[in-house]
Design a protein around this nucleic acid. Structure first.
Lengths: 104, 104
DNA sequence: ATATCATTTCGTTATTTTGCGAAATAAAGA
DNA sequence: TCTTTATTTCGCAAAATAACGAAATGATAT
């Protein structure tokens, strides 16, 4: 078959999530939020991660855009937490990726 | 603490794998190999994926570099299969990422 | 030796990503 | 009002990525 199908929305969407996770700084943040089941502040992170404030802010923005985290304004801080719903979605996608089955 | 620790090797390495998966074409290939528990040829893929031969070749190279697949020369073809060992490693890493626990 | 076949490498171009510091914002305190 | 504090946005430069077609490779068949 010489179909040249478009790649499915599901694959494209999952790749987007994987891409968002595919940077050490962003993965570190997600690991922290996931493992500790906690939230954190940009100011905490900047002391732990070897990157400047504005750069960190960019990464947070990307994670937010990918739907993996959400920010709650708590002046003068912003509290970042996992987006639980989307995180659960991601977990399911990953599970499926690692589960063999006959159809595609 | 104003430590600015280096990010761990584990996090950096896992980010590398995620990054390799974070492109629709590469993810499609891995999905196919994983779900069908099969191998495939570049020539098959080029008919299914909307991308040129040389571009596809580049993506295969990246997946190989990331350790996710391996190519077996079968002239005039090259048979690409999942690198089972590393794939299992990845599965474990992902599982851990989605598992809450207190320490970091 | 030459032609064919699947695939890769090369050279190039366009786009995206990463990172930084300076300036902007937004809220609260003096 | 003028600071201070936490964070983001802006503007920029450097590096990485993605994509392509043309040329190269390596193996086989004529």
């Amino acid at each position: 078959m010489k179909k040249k199908t478009e790649l499915s929305i599901e694959t494209t969407e999952m790749a987007r999530v994987l891409k968002a996770l595919g940077h050490p700084v962003r993965l570190y943040i997600i690991q922290k939020l996931s493992k500790m089941n906690a939230c954190c502040y940009s100011g905490d992170l900047v002391d732990e991660i070897p990157v400047g404030r504005s750069t960190l802010s960019q990464h947070l923005k990307e994670l937010k855009f990918a739907g993996l985290i959400q920010g709650e304004v708590e002046p003068p801080y912003i509290k970042y937490c996992l987006n639980k719903g989307n995180w659960e979605e991601a977990r399911k996608m990953f599970n499926e990726l690692f589960t063999e089955n006959e159809q595609l």
